[in-house]
């Protein structure tokens, strides 16, 4: 096992150890925090595919997080009320089954990503950042004015969706579901980045002209990566909705986009376990600094500033450098 692989495994193992340790010591609250970290890390792994490997600085990934969440909320609330989600063009019934909701959330998110990605990828660089941000804001305002599903107040559903053979209300079992999905997404991400497609994608980030000169269209590569990335973030959104049993426009807000990006950068861009370390540290800081001052986000801002200015590789970048020295 190479150093990077060892580091990735160690970070993931640390998250699992925290959850199981907390369960053994009877601290379900900490298990729930670890679950939140796993879900946010899943969103980060998704964004990393576009941002770290594809070089697409999307500042609008909250839109996919939110759509995944809303699909979950809408299906669950219709299942609870016993009404169909839609009767046109054909009847779609509500569902309280995670295995039914997840694919739906990923498909809807991917469709949104095809449209947003195809339009945004007409631009590059700083335009791309602004355009993705703007499209996310559009969906945010749409959700606010969509009264049928709660509008500004958001949408609550009282029963967490079910998974065959498991009790999703038991904190450790829901953590296990989230952690397995996170591990699968990390494995998928590792496979993709090593495949022909992933290599071409990374080449297109490094040198667009040369990739075009070898007869590959960067647009198709980037759009595919954008859609895959969005689908993973959508799945994370679905889990996040289930964690809170609540979805609201806040999941779609620019602030959420910024936070998902922070997980990736805090951990280390383009590193497999970067988002896991980033989300874990973020949750940890939220708990520690949140206890010190209600203005903890200002401290988070200063820390983030220090990382960007002085440690561009993020936490894992620092750790990897430390290991190399040993």
């Amino acid at each position: 096992m190479g150093r990077d692989a060892a580091l990735n495994t160690a970070v993931f193992a640390a998250l699992v150890a925290v959850a199981f340790g907390a369960h053994v010591y009877g601290a379900p609250y900490v298990v729930t925090l670890a679950t939140k970290a796993a879900i946010l890390a899943l969103a980060g792994v998704g964004l990393n595919l576009a941002l770290g490997y594809g070089g697409m600085v999307s500042f609008g990934h909250a839109v996919f997080f939110g759509i995944g969440g809303y699909v979950t909320g809408i299906f669950a609330s219709h299942a609870a009320a016993g009404t169909p989600v839609t009767t046109f063009p054909f009847t779609i019934a509500g569902s309280a089954e995670m295995l039914g909701i997840w694919p739906m959330a990923m498909v809807v998110t991917a469709l949104a990503a095809v449209v947003i990605g195809a339009l945004s990828l007409r631009t590059t660089g700083v335009y791309f950042i602004m355009v993705t941000l703007a499209f996310a804001q559009m969906v945010y305002y749409f959700a606010i004015s969509w009264r049928a599903y709660g509008g500004e107040d958001g949408l609550s559903f009282y029963v967490r969706n079910s998974f065959p053979g498991l009790n999703t209300f038991a904190p450790l079992q829901f953590f296990a579901i989230s952690a397995v999905l996170l591990a699968m997404a990390m494995a998928f991400s590792a496979l993709v980045t090593r495949s022909r497609f992933g290599l071409a994608l990374q080449a297109a980030r490094a040198n667009r002209q040369r990739v075009m000169a070898s007869g590959i269209r960067p647009f198709a590569l980037q759009l595919t990566a954008f859609v895959l990335s969005a689908a993973i973030v959508g799945l994370a959104g679905a889990l996040y909705a289930d964690l809170n049993r609540f979805v609201s426009p806040a999941m779609l807000s620019w602030h959420m986009s910024g936070e998902i990006m922070v997980f990736v950068i805090l951990g280390g861009v383009g590193r497999l376990a970067g988002p896991v370390a980033g989300a874990g540290v973020f949750i940890l800081l939220e708990q520690l600094l949140g206890g010190v001052s209600e203005y903890w986000q200002a401290l988070l801002g200063l820390l983030l500033l220090a990382i960007v200015l002085y440690a561009p590789g993020g936490i894992l970048g620092l750790l990897a450098r430390g290991m190399r020295r040993v």
């Binding site: 500042f59 990006m261 922070v262 200002a298 801002g301 200063l302 983030l304 500033l305 960007v308």
Partner: peptide, 10 residues
Amino acid sequence: VLATFALILV
């Protein structure tokens, strides 16, 4: 983007 996002928080 990140550094100025951090500035917003501050």
